[in-house]
Design a protein around this nucleic acid. Sequence first.
DNA 1: CCCGCTCTATGAAATGTTTCATCCGGAGGG
DNA 2: CCCTCCGGATGAAACATTTCATAGAGCGGG
Lengths: 326, 326
Amino acid sequence: MKGTTPTMKDVAQEAGVALGTVSKVFNGLPVGERYRVKVEEAAKRLGYQVNQYARGLRSGKTYNVAVILPGVDHPFFAALAQHLCAALMRREHRMLLYVTASNPDAERECVGMVRQNKVDGVIGLTYNPLELDGELPFVSIDRCLGPDIPCVAADNYGGGRMAAEKLIELGCTRLAFLRTGSASPSETDKRGDGFEMACRAHNIPYDALRLNDGEDFRRFRAFFQEHMAAGRLDIDGIFCSTDLLAWRVRGMLAKLGVRVPEDVQLIGFDGIRRFGAEELYCSTIVQPTQKLAETAVDLLLAKDRSNAPALVCLPVSYAPGGTTRE
Amino acid sequence: MKGTTPTMKDVAQEAGVALGTVSKVFNGLPVGERYRVKVEEAAKRLGYQVNQYARGLRSGKTYNVAVILPGVDHPFFAALAQHLCAALMRREHRMLLYVTASNPDAERECVGMVRQNKVDGVIGLTYNPLELDGELPFVSIDRCLGPDIPCVAADNYGGGRMAAEKLIELGCTRLAFLRTGSASPSETDKRGDGFEMACRAHNIPYDALRLNDGEDFRRFRAFFQEHMAAGRLDIDGIFCSTDLLAWRVRGMLAKLGVRVPEDVQLIGFDGIRRFGAEELYCSTIVQPTQKLAETAVDLLLAKDRSNAPALVCLPVSYAPGGTTRE
DNA sequence: CCCGCTCTATGAAATGTTTCATCCGGAGGG
DNA sequence: CCCTCCGGATGAAACATTTCATAGAGCGGG
């Protein structure tokens, strides 16, 4: 037992075969059965583990994938990180996680580190496009960054429509769409578009209040107070662009004496849960988080990336969570 | 402009110096000023980036650290992951994140991947000790795994005592300690120990109900019903082993018609917040999450690990969060 | 003026893998 | 029996870096 980690050369010697043969065995290349067995036994005896850094140096394959997320404190991002990790592990890859905390400088720094790390590819959910102009395989989640960058996203438009149709089905006659988020145009805008389209299609009156991140949150309160001029809320169905917003709106309504779901029904978007598999924050349009992660990994590691689709749109679903009358 | 990424050899040629000189410049080793400038300019011209895999192969330093967490869906773990990432980046390291989802098999699998990846070290918060017997620098967070494995944890004992003293200071006369968690002895047990010690020291009566993860949650409800025999709760201060538990207990109390904090005051442990820097779940003992992460990184990357402390205990603090009468 | 010492740039060796041109042995056909 | 051909094992070269023994320059002292 040598003190140092065994190398392929050690295995070759132990098995009485050539170096190249050992390499072939570990790469699944065709090798005579006799040799394969000898090598495998020798490797087990020595406790051999391939050195990924030597492999990466020579072959360019590192089996590492960089994942760039704005944060992991939001349940949606957390779930995404978890599923990405699992999906990558299933395919023998590892996840190099960069948390940018929505800081553009940090994002830029990440790009540098990603570049010098020679990862096999990048999966990112970032607010501004990375300057990785085609140097590295890149898959974006939930953000369409350009025509040549594949993007996998939930069907936000369809989700918005689904929310409207559900509220209408549940008896609502006057709806509203509330939104927070980044000012720059993003995938999530489509949630509102789908919602408004469905309202028009069903001839249901609706209001929309779209706030950007910096703007004063109290404008929502003002909105509600306007709509309570008659003593009680003249809106009976609300679609919020995220579950988090729905949660805060629910609190706001409670303070105004409006009951949910008796007086007004509320649907959010994301399908986040408090912890493991526990309660939803609200009735909601659920993003297929696991599917998103798996699709992103599939797209990134696909053998032939030349004919990859520019946008993969995954179906969402509705889940009641106590803020609707079911 | 060649199509391939530039190497040190290219930089050396461009700068008109030797290969070794370029290497020294990038490793901060002493080099004549004239040469350093020439190399730096050439590198900038070519857009040179060191190849971490070649470096790792030759020097053994990979500048990668594996982080093993049971999950990132819990806000405490999420915060930890985020701070670990930032602390590692600050020291030019990258975070290889393995999420085990509390699955012992996954943990084992991680160990294998960690081993073959030749990371510089491991920071882990795992439920059962990893079989890494001293092969690799290892720092444990919040779990004392053995005498030779450095562990950084919050002052759980002191936190329990602090909770008791706070409740007493706020006028409570009869206390309770409620706990959930893994059956195996863990750091968190100390929270209860500290709490009970303080109760005895102040001559305050208390009850303790310690449930393990599998056990029926409704035993908490039974506990409360017993203590409401007289029509109203005979306990006026509760310490829960985690904020999450406190949250659920609060919901349970609401259903039983007990008001928080009017009838009973509630203190949790962790200091988790709903999202970014928003509200606490409850009045709580706050873990110094960022400090935990930074200390773990410091400990792991310390030049001289031979005289590292076996346990670093970081101070906690109290924060009111609406479930106490302040 | 020359010798020797010190300081520092130099480039070859080494790191553990993959890949590819080569070579060997065996089989089949003339 | 010999020549050819083919499948498959072989090991040297290449990958981009660090490190170390060496060489060469500059300088001071005898």
